[in-house]
Design a protein around this nucleic acid. Structure first.
Lengths: 124, 124
DNA sequence: ATAAGTGTATTAACACGATTAATACACTTC
DNA sequence: GAAGTGTATTAATCGTGTTAATACACTTAT
C-alpha cells in the first residue's frame, strides 16, 4: 500500500516512485503484475492523475515499469530493472570519479571505499 | 583574470568560485597569496559584495581558501584543497554506491569501472 | 460503432527555493 | 578613530520544479 507524507519535503511523484520501487524490489509486486491505472491510483491517493503519470513515466525510463497505451502499466522483468538503474547511477558517478582521479586518488583507495570506508562525512 | 558570462545559466557566485579554483589549481594563484577583498573584487566585476563573500565562504568550506576577519582571504595549502574536495565528492558518491551494492554490483565490477569502464551513458 | 477504460501530450498556474541585494555589525591595522 | 578588512541578517527577486487542467490517442468490450 502506498502512503504519502505531506510533511516530507520530497515531491509527491517522488514518494510514489519510491513506494512502487520498494514494492517491486521486495517482491510485493512481481514481474508482469498490472499496476493501478493512473486515474485509479490518483483517485485513491486524492491527487492529480498527471502526478501518477509522471511517476510511472520515470519508472519506465529507469526500467522498472513497462507502459502500454490503452492497456496499462506493468512491472518489468527484474533484470531489466537492475540494468537500467545501474546505468543511471553510474552515469552520475562517472564525472565525480574523473575528478577524484585528477585529484590523485588511487584504485586502492577506491577499493577500500567500496567496502565500508570510514571517513568523516563533511557534507555542507 | 576573472570573467563572467551572463548568458551562462550558472549563478554568478558559482562562476566566481570556478574561476578562482581553476586559477589556484593551475598555479596562477599560489598558497599564501592574498585574494582581492570582497569589496574590491565586487567593484571590479560590478556585482554585489555579498556574492563574492559567498564564493569565498564556500571555497573556504571546501578547503581552498582561508578567511581572516580584518585581514583578507588567502589561498590555502594545496594538500588541504585536495582533502576537502575529496571528502565532498565521496560524500555525494556514498549513497549511490550503497544502492549499487544493493543491486548486486560486485567489487570487481566496480574496480573495472574505476579504470575506464566502457558503458553507454543513458542519462535522461 | 460507441462507450468506457487505458496511457500520453500540452499548457498554464503555483509554490518554493536559490540567488542576489541592502544594510548593519565586528575585527585589524595604521 | 578612520579606513580597510571579513561577517551576519534580512529582504526582494527571479527561476525552476511541481502540480493541475484539459485535450488527445489508443484498446477493449459491449
Amino acid at each position: 500500500m502506498i502512503h504519502l507524507d505531506y510533511r516530507d519535503s520530497r515531491p509527491i511523484y517522488q514518494q510514489v516512485k519510491d513506494n512502487l520501487r520498494r514494492m517491486m524490489v521486495t517482491g510485493v509486486l512481481n514481474a508482469g503484475d498490472k499496476l493501478p491505472s493512473v486515474r485509479a491510483l490518483a483517485s485513491q491517493l486524492s491527487i492529480n492523475p498527471n502526478t501518477i503519470q509522471r511517476a510511472y513515466a520515470e519508472l519506465e525510463a529507469e526500467g522498472y515499469v513497462v507502459s502500454v497505451t490503452g492497456k496499462g502499466n506493468f512491472v518489468a522483468e527484474g533484470d531489466t530493472q537492475n540494468q537500467a538503474r545501474r546505468q543511471e547511477l553510474l552515469a552520475k558517478m562517472r564525472p565525480m570519479m574523473e575528478e577524484l582521479k585528477a585529484l590523485g586518488m588511487t584504485a586502492e583507495e577506491f577499493a577500500v571505499l567500496w567496502e565500508g570506508g570510514k571517513d568523516d562525512a563533511a557534507s555542507k
